[in-house]
Each structure stands twice: as structure tokens, then as C-alpha cells.
Design a binder for these strands. Sequence first.
DNA 1: TCTGGGGTCCTAGGACCC
DNA 2: TCTGGGGTCCTAGGACCC
Length: 417
Amino acid sequence: MYALIDCNNFYVSCERIFRSDLINKPVVVLSNNDGCIIARSNEVKQLGVPMGAPLFQYRTLLEKYHTTIFSSNYQLYADISRRIMMLIKQYAPCMEVYSIDEAFIQFESRTDYFAFASHLKKIIKQWIGVPVSIGIAPTKTLAKAANYVAKNNTSNGIYICLSKQISLLLKQVPLSEIWGVGRNMLEQFKRAGITTSLNLQQRCSHQIQKKYGVVYQKLVMELKGQSFLPLENIQPKQKIMSSRSFSYEIIHFHELAEAIANFISTATKKARSQKSMATGLQVFVRTNRFNQKSPQYRNFIEMNFDTPTNDTGHLIHIAKQLLKQIYREGYRYKKAGVSLTGLIHESAVQHQLLPCIMPAPRKRLRQLLDNINQKQGRNAVYFASQGNHRTWMPNCNCRSPRYTTQWNELYLVDATY
DNA sequence: TCTGGGGTCCTAGGACCC
DNA sequence: TCTGGGGTCCTAGGACCC
């Protein structure tokens, strides 16, 4: 059997840990640059505010209901997530961390599913402060569906589906909510007369495979109760991306280059932390696609290396050369980013026959930089090309304190002393 | 005025091999 | 006019996820 443990309105719940005054009050969390609404409390969902909606379209409505608005605080959310996952792991060693707010666990059949789920739910609320929903079923896809019912159709946030009860479960889950059915497939299925989860479950999996491919064959088998998707281990990323929308539209090359240098710094740091080297680099820029009045331009360039690297300085240099090739004067750039591609493990690097371009001292330098930044805080030391002011950095005007990861932002219990 | 930032997998088709 | 029968690897694009 599988269980899916999913945090309720995760980012909002993280904010509420330290703001108990906001429980049962409308709360939203915004994307980078304070652009879109990416997490909503139940009160806000009930107002009809959709996921991913631009803030400016709903600001009046939110203000009318005295909604508390937060910029995103990823350091906080990542730390809370880490604590929850560690706690779950104590109860269920066979575990897959599926996303920042979801984990699958697998266990042998037992008789006390409900007691087990209730205990887990209670302990996570008590120790961490985050409410979760738990769905239990014979396959991962069905556990996802059970979690949907747990969240929406139950009062205790737990739903258990045994093998014989699959039809009863699927009757409560719209096809659009089935894991793996996106907007496109929903349309395609609809044209084939498949409009409900049960319709899809009852189709012959071979015919589904012929028409839609092996992905959807597995999906149908999973809906029938036959497990095809195993728990997966955390794999090193195959590519690492870093990009941002700017707080204003950038015109000058040097500002764009400064932003790109920062993206390289972020991406290479991630690559080093998973002991990966990049064999390729992509750089892209684009103007504001929503501002149809100003001329539009977007471009992308990539380069592959003979010698894999994760050296920040080296990659900043290359990225700047690439940026020169796609930068055009006269445009107003709103977004840019980089991707490290073809990542391979350090130990798998094939060295060149001819002298390596990356002498050993660079490796020591990289380690030193990472160590200092680890101890002293992000960007305690950085490359000059990353700039000092970074005025282009996305807005985050309503970010809460990073209560659990920054000494100077600790939760203040009493300020009298 | 204001519109996020990441990822994965699969398939079809072309280039190339013997 | 006639023109084999296998393979592999790579890439672009399309689908999905949070």
C-alpha cells in the first residue's frame, strides 16, 4: 500500500506557524517579484481566487477581505519541509520525497491504516505546526486521488481506499484531478468519450497504449489498482536552471551581465552541492511579453564544453561571452536566466589528453568560497561581476523573517530584556 | 502600473553505423 | 526499372508535475 502525505496550503501553513493570529484568516503567498498568487489559504480559495493568478487582478478583492499578503520566503519553506520529511522518515523508512510539500510512503498491508494515519497527522501538526492530508491506496496514482478526497470531501483529512473500494474513490475524483492528466490530455480523452476517472479506469490498457503511449497505459493500470510506479530515490539533477524576472526593465548590457553572473553563481553552487559538473551552458534573455507596446525580443544560446566544469568564475566568463552574442541594443529586458546542462558526476569526468584548463588551485578556491558562504551566510563573498547593488533583484516587499535559518531573524518571544 | 521558477519523461524522426 | 535489414544515438518538441 502507498500513502501520500500532502501539506495543506503549504506556504501559507509555514507562515501561520509563526503567526497564529492568521489561522482561519485569509492569507496568500506570492511568487518571486510579488507577481502571482502561488499559495492560498482556504478562505482565499473560497473567494474564487485561482492558483497562479496575477496579484494586481485580485488585489481589490483581497483587500476587501483583509487578506494578509506575503512575498515568498523559500528559505523558511525549505527548512520546514526538511523537518517534516525527517519526521515522516522516522515512521516510514520506505519514503519518496516527491516535492517540497508531498511525500509518498510504502508499507505492507496492515489492519490499522486509520490509526496510523491519524497518529502521523497529529504528530506533524504537534511537532512542526503544519496540517497535512493523507490518502492511502494500493498504488501511487490512487493514493494521490485518495489524498484529493481526504482534502476536499472529509472532515479529518484522511481517506483510505482498499483494493475493493477503488470505484467508490474514483467516483469522487474528477478526471482533471487525476495525476498525469493535464489540460491537453483532458481534451483528447474527452474527444474519445472518456470524461470521468471511472471511464478512464475501465478502458483497456493495451488500447490506451496504442493510442496515447506507454505513460497513459501505466496510468490506467495504476487506476485499476496494479502498482506500476515504484517509489523513487532522489536522483541528482540532470540540469540546473537559475532565472528571474527583474524588478524593472533592463536596458544596459552591463546590468544584464551582472544578473547573469548572479544566476551562474546560484546554479554552480547547486551543481557543486550535488557534486556535478556541467558539460553545457544555456543563456536566455527576453523582453516583457505582457507589454505589447514595446518591441519584443527573445533569444537563447548554448555552448557545450570539452571539459566539464562547475567553476563559477570560469562559467561567468563564458556566460558573458554568450550574452554578448544575443544581446541587442534598444530592447527592454524583463527576464533572463541560465541553465547548466548535461550534468555528470565529478567522478565520471573524462579528462582531456591535453592539459586541463582548470588548474588545481581553482578547486581549492571554489571550496573555500562555498565554505565561507556556508558559515557566514549567502553571498558573504562573491565575484565582482555579480555587482554590489543588484537593483534589478525581484521585489519581495512583504517577506516574513527567515525564522529558522538566520540568527538575526529568530522569532522574538519577549523583547523586554 | 503590476503577470514565477523550477523540473521530468517519452516519442518521432534524422543521422549514422554495419 | 530495379535499390536490405537491421541497429544506436541524438535532438526537438510535447506532454506532464510542483
